[in-house]
C-alpha cells in the first residue's frame, strides 16, 4: 500500500497504480490537465510510470481568472 498526496490531500492506494490509472480514476483523461510529480512536471509520455509511497502529486487545470 502506498500513501501519496494529491493536491494537498492524503490518499491511500491499495494497489500499485500508474499515473495514467490515477488520471482515469478521477475521470480526467479527456480533460486538459497538467501533472507535477514531486515538484517536477511529468510529460504525458511518462504517465505509465507507477506511483510509489510518499509521492506528492499536483493535478492542475485552467479555471476562470483575470
Amino acid at each position: 500500500m502506498a500513501k501519496i498526496q494529491i493536491n494537498g490531500k492524503k490518499v491511500n492506494l491499495k494497489n500499485t497504480i500508474s499515473i495514467l490509472e490515477l488520471v482515469k480514476k478521477y475521470k480526467l483523461t479527456k480533460k486538459a490537465v497538467a501533472i507535477e510529480l514531486n515538484g517536477k512536471i511529468l510529460p504525458k509520455a511518462k504517465y505509465k510510470q507507477l506511483l510509489k509511497d510518499k509521492d506528492i502529486i499536483e493535478i492542475v487545470h485552467f479555471i476562470g481568472g483575470g
Binding site: 494537498g8 485552467f62 479555471i63 481568472g65
Partner: peptide
C-alpha cells in the same frame, strides 16, 4: 485569460471552464 489551479479531486463531475468555453474557439491565455 485563464488561471491555473488544482483540480477538485473530491468532485469528479464538477464542470470545467473548457466545457463552456472551447479552447478551439478561444485562445486561452494562461
Amino acid at each position: 485569460t485563464v488561471a491555473v489551479r488544482r483540480v477538485n479531486i473530491l468532485d469528479k463531475k464538477k464542470p470545467m471552464l473548457s466545457d463552456y468555453l472551447s479552447p478551439k474557439k478561444y485562445l486561452y491565455l494562461p
